[in-house]
Nucleic acid binder design. Structure first.
Length: 423
RNA sequence: GUGGCUGUAGCUCAAGUGGCAGAGCACCUGACUGUGGAUCAGGAUGUUGUGGGUUCAAGUCCCAUCAGCCACCCCA
């Protein structure tokens, strides 16, 4: 009765074994890329006091998109909408004992009270990776290289996905040069961000609305088309040189229109997108200057990025790069000949587990056809059967499900035969 | 939070202007009482997302609500 099943919470996902296998696979790829560059795994609580986000309480992320509720004692608890404040606290607490630069990564669930859409849910998983305590373009390049390493690792080519890079300081200078006052930068950044969302005429209207002259608009247009603008930024020149040495250059592209919404980015910013622009950003990050000041520590600079689990999965699906994952750990199923031989089957299963092969049993007597069908469906590769004939001859019937071949294997040889079939 | 599209069996979808709710795949049983994917023969399946309303009659029209999707917002 489908209508009687209680609905899951809006914007959450059930992870059936097939989906869980994908999530775990992603997690393993993230781990591999993080560890390849010497990053250590960490995590914080999923529940945090609302006060942790107080410094950002004016921002939409916390004010409107966080799950906040009172606990039984009346304190306001937040389901973490992001990891950065937690990271800031953890760094601040050990600021005097940590070996800087700190290189940490994490993968876990986050919650945001948003309207669910494709690639966006209310409960999602996110990879966070940061280098803290260093302020150099080469550090920025390393983070971009970790991202590129991941993209390469999961089989996405530079022609399919690109990490687009820009620099906030460069943009500030450029805006200065066309006479945009510092207090209007934010509005202009917004304008830049909407470049693709508005029609050219609507875009110009919006530009006029925020007070840009015709000359400034054309200057801005020129700026946004300047693919070599990065050559004017020493930071970006060094960034791209370092990326080259880190074998990430082919995935990187300078893009003057990349701004990133978050206010706390101060230098290099980057985001990965699929080449056809079909999806939202795959990952996003950049350099920030004042990580722990908000939670009471001395300011420390850092650079990092976050990657959600949903968009990358959509991109991998589109390009057919999700591997065929078999969520079934047991490659061996021991069938039950009949009720009298059920415990013989159980003993055999125990023996095979002792060999080191994950093994499932059929936990009740049933027609053999049903049991073989079950073995096939759950993804087992081999079925073992112990009937009266086998017991009399001290053998085991071993059936290879993919070749349909069945052999009678003497018990002493079972281990080596299975090793060949299953490993 | 704003606006729009959609919702029929486990899945993909049918059911002119309201008139008995269907097909393919999947599933179950058997042919095959020591063997899975093929074949054949049978079989089960829905309060048409939910709750109201209009009507002799609602999957179909109206209202509300929930969910998914799209745009905005924001962002992973």
């Amino acid at each position: 009765m489908a209508n009687k099943i209680i609905q899951s919470v809006k914007g959450t996902r059930d992870f059936y074994p097939e989906q869980m296998a994908v999530r775990t696979w992603l997690y393993n790829q993230m781990r591999a890329s993080s560890e390849a560059f010497g990053y250590q795994e960490y995590d914080g609580p999923f529940l945090e006091p609302l006060a942790l986000y107080a410094a950002k309480s004016g921002e939409e992320l916390v004010k409107e998109q966080a799950f906040v509720f009172p606990d039984r004692g009346g304190d306001l608890i937040t389901l973490r909408p992001e990891l950065t404040p937690t990271l800031a606290r953890m760094v601040a607490r050990r600021q005097n004992q940590l070996a800087f630069p700190v290189r940490w990564w994490s993968f876990g669930p986050f919650w945001r009270y948003e309207k669910p859409q494709k690639g966006r849910a209310r409960e999602f998983f996110q990879w966070n990776i940061d280098m803290i305590g260093v302020n150099s373009p080469e550090a920025d390049a390393e983070l971009a290289a970790v991202g590129a390493n991941f993209l390469k690792r999961v089989g996405l080519s530079p022609s399919e996905v690109k990490i687009l890079v820009n620099n906030r300081r460069l943009m500030d200078e450029q805006l200065d040069s066309i006479g945009v006052a510092p207090e209007r930068r934010k509005a202009v950044f917004r304008l830049i961000d909407r470049r693709d969302k508005l029609s050219p005429s609507a875009w110009e209207e919006y530009a006029a609305e925020i007070g840009l002259s015709a000359a400034q608009v054309s200057g801005l247009r020129e700026m946004l088309a300047a693919e070599n603008l990065w050559e004017q930024s020493e930071e970006l020149v060094r960034f791209f040189e370092a990326a080259e040495a880190l074998e990430a250059r082919e995935y990187l592209k300078y893009a003057p229109y990349i701004i990133r919404g978050l206010d706390y980015y101060t230098g290099t910013v980057f985001e990965a997108r699929d080449a056809e622009g079909e999806f939202r950003a795959i990952l996003g990050g950049g350099r920030y200057d004042n990580l722990v000041a908000d939670v009471g520590g001395k300011p420390v600079a850092g650079v990092g990025f976050a990657m959600g689990d949903m968009v990358i999965t959509l991109v991998l699906e589109k390009y057919g790069r999700l591997p065929a994952l078999n969520p079934q750990p047991a490659k061996v199923l021991v069938a039950v000949f009949d009720a009298d031989h059920l415990l013989d089957a159980y003993r055999l299963a125990s023996e095979v587990r002792g060999f080191g092969f994950p093994t499932a049993t059929y936990p009740e007597p049933a027609k053999l056809g049903k049991q073989f069908k079950y073995a096939d469906k759950i993804g087992a590769r081999v079925v073992l059967l112990l009937g009266p004939d086998e017991i009399a001859q001290n053998t085991v019937a071993v059936k290879n499900l993919s070749t349909r071949e069945q052999t009678s294997v003497p018990r002493p040889q079972l281990r080596s035969v299975l090793a060949e079939l299953v490993s």
